[in-house]
Structure formats: C-alpha cells, structure tokens
C-alpha cells in the first residue's frame, strides 16, 4: 500500500499549488444536500461531545443543595457565578497557576528543543547507532511512569542541590527535579514523533537551499526545524496539556504545599470527607481554560501551517 511514495524528487511547487487552490475554491462554493447532511452529522456529534462538559459548567452555576436534591438534569432554582468567585479567592488559583507555569513552560521548551535535535540526529545525520537511540527513547516512553517512582524518589532525595536552587537542599521537592523528570519522560514520545516526521522530509528540500559546508547546527536550526514546525506545534499542544494536567510526579516528588501545581489547588477544594462537587466543577472549568487557550493558539499554527504548504503557491 505504500506505492505512492515517490521515487522522483518533489514536484515543483507551482503545479500542486495551483491545483490546490482551484480545488479548494471549487469545493467551498458548493452547497449540496450531502454537505448539509455532513453538517447535521458533525453538529450532532459535536454537541454530543460537548454535552458532558456543558453539564459540568451548568452544575458549576448551581448551588450544591439544589443539584443534590433534584439531580443534575433538572431546572435550576437560580444560576450564579458565586462558585467562580469563591474558587478564585479560596483556592488561590493565581499562585498555583504560577507554580504550574514555572514547571510547564521550561519543560515544554526543553523537551521540544532536545527532542527535535535528537530526532534530527537520528533522522538526518548518518550516525552509527541511530537505531539504538531511537529504540532507547521510544521504548522509554512506553514505560508505565509508576515503574519509576520509587527509585526516582530515592535518587532525588540523595542528589544534593545548593540552597538557591532548592530549599529542600535536594532534587526532591524542587521545581528543577519536576522539570527534569517531565523532560526525561516526555522526550521519548517527542523524539519518536519528530524523527518520524523528519524522515519524511525529502532530502532534496533540505539540501537545495544549502551552501555546501553549512554546519550541522545551522542545518538543524535553519532548515529542518522550520520544516518541522507543524509537528512541533502539535507536540507543544499535547505536551503542554499533559504536563499541565500531571499530578503523579508532583504527588511523589514534591512535599511543600505552596509549591504544588494547579491540580493540587483543585484538591484543596475537597474536604476530608465532604466535597462540594459544584464548587470543584467551577474550579476545574477555570483550570481547564489555559489548556483550551493554548490549543486554540497552536491549533491555528499547526493546521494553518500545513494548509499553507498544501494549498498556497
């Protein structure tokens, strides 16, 4: 089934570009019954997908006593934003959000940087042992994270750090430790995706623009990396979401409550026994917003980036 892979160099841009534009425009103008049916199907599915989330938002606007007494699918006695105000104040969201950023932003950047370089080395440089590297990184990502916990904890406790990096004087209970494990653990998946992606970039493209003798670093930075932008944007979205929502590593590698990430701010809304689930829903909705924003920002990047390549001359 791979018969379509090309034996010839990439077709010159003009041909495909022109046909891409014309076909896109043709398709846009048509309004057919089939198209209406498609919208009906998609709209139904999309609303079905959104329904549980909307239900959660709806619950977050109702007092707990109301939903507890009448069920979650019932008419509201009243709707109020009180829970959102309460969450913002009680759960100290800004502080925990900041904690999360301290971990997430550097981690995503380092992961993408290291992974793209490793992927580049594996996919584009004739390296002895490139396969072994790929196996090592990819397989590492398939490991269940729980398998690492105990030894990692012992290791972190024993690695001393100066006080100005970590007040616990060790990697345990430090942001640096958290960033390190995120980088190490997510590296595999990103290397795998990027190596796969870079292998698909025709060699001719990368070389056409190069003056012979450009260094490896320069080829990586100015040629391959820009070409991998869609994959990087997709990975940035996924990694941001994963690290943002992570609770396992913070749970086992941190002990100071005021350093914990935002997932723990949500847990602060749970009592020892009783939990006001509607309040928790309000908190969870607020906490989900950054990931939704990041998705929307990067969605444009990776999908538009690719569309640009396919449709415009």
């Amino acid at each position: 089934m791979t018969a379509v892979t090309s034996t010839s160099p990439a077709t010159p841009p003009s041909t495909t570009g022109a046909s891409g534009v014309s076909s896109a425009q043709r398709r846009k103008r048509r309004i057919t019954p089939a198209r209406i049916a498609l919208h009906i199907v998609l709209m139904t599915a999309a609303l079905g997908w959104l329904a549980p989330v909307l239900l959660a938002v709806y619950a977050s606007l109702r007092p707990y006593a109301d939903t507890a007494a009448h069920g979650y699918l019932s008419w509201p006695e009243r709707l109020t934003f009180d829970y959102y105000i309460q969450v913002w104040q009680d759960a100290e969201l800004p502080r925990y959000f900041f904690n999360t950023l301290i971990v997430t932003v550097p981690a995503v950047i380092i992961i993408l940087f290291l992974a793209s370089f490793v992927a580049y080395a594996i996919a584009r440089v004739r390296l002895p042992g490139a396969r072994v590297l790929l196996v090592l990184f990819t397989a590492g990502n398939l490991l269940p994270p729980q398998v690492l916990i105990t030894p990692l904890y012992v290791l972190y406790n024993k690695l001393p750090l100066p006080w100005w990096i970590s007040d616990s004087m060790s990697l345990y209970d430090s942001y640096l430790g958290l960033i390190a494990i995120h980088v190490a653990f997510q590296l595999g998946f990103c290397v795998f995706v990027l190596a796969n992606y870079m292998r698909q970039i025709p060699t001719e493209i990368t070389e056409a623009a190069l003056v012979d003798g450009a260094g490896l670093w320069k080829r990586y930075l100015t040629v391959t990396l820009p070409l991998a932008r869609p994959a990087l944007a997709a990975l940035a979205t996924l990694e941001f979401t994963w690290i943002y929502n992570d609770f396992l590593w913070a749970l086992v590698l941190m002990s100071s409550g005021d350093k914990l990430p935002i997932t723990s701010a949500l847990n602060n809304l749970r009592g020892q026994f009783f939990t006001d689930y509607n309040l928790l829903a309000a908190g969870a909705v607020l906490v989900a917003l950054p990931t939704i924003i990041v998705f929307n920002l990067l969605q444009k990047q990776f999908i538009a980036g690719l569309t640009l390549g396919a449709n415009k001359g």
Binding site: W49, P52, V53, A284
Partner: peptide, 10 residues
C-alpha cells in the same frame, strides 16, 4: 478536542 485537555478532577 475539548475532552483531551480536561484534568483528572473534572
């Protein structure tokens, strides 16, 4: 895509 970004709590 929305369900993908939701955290454990929600």
């Amino acid at each position: 895509y929305l369900p993908v970004v939701l955290s454990l709590a929600i």
